[in-house]
Amino acid sequence: MDFAGALSPDNLRFILEGFYVTLKVAFISIVLSFVLGCLVGTIRYAKIPILAPVLGVIVEILRNLPLLLIIFFTRFALPDIGIKLDVVTSAIVALTLFEGAIISEIVRSGLNSVNKGQIEASRSSGLGYTQTLWHIVMPQGLRRMVPPLVSQFIALLKDTSLAVVISLPELMNHSKIVIAQSYDFVIPVLMVVALLYFSVNYALSLIARRLEAKFV
């Protein structure tokens, strides 16, 4: 083990550059998959004809496949049908599709958990369907969604590491380049990498717990 050599300023900077890409890709994918998940989840909750069942099938397929496979697909199969994406974009698209499918299920079951009696009461007191959805169902459903949503965001951040297979220059990719310099670097570098992932995700999970305590 060679801590000093493994964590020289150059190597450390290189590892952190990778971490920046991890955070950037994760952040963009979290925002996009949340939007996508909310949309698909709401459409399926509201049982909009045609759209809801079609999305249902797509969601089922996406969330039952390994993300690793979806990442490889978006990188090398989409271009076959004319959609060309660079490494960063295809990683974001893959993560957004996969995590969006899972988030849509979280959203749907969150909305479903709202007491039907309340919906009927609100409808009979004169509110429209959209108004009921917006003012009665959403706020209550959202409260129940917060804990699973945050753990899904943590999962997404961890899942960015799978994009090493398409050579996304993220944390794992960069740390492997550093490790390649000498086998004595393996343990020190892996410790730093674990620490980086852990600190961000642990902070997120603390925030989740805070939110949970506040809402529930």
Partner: peptide, 16 residues
């Protein structure tokens, strides 16, 4: 364990 990627866990076993 919950807060680090699976890839890293296996990486430690295989290379570490």
């Amino acid at each position: 364990i919950r807060n680090i990627p699976l890839l890293l866990v296996v990486f430690v076993f295989f290379y570490g």
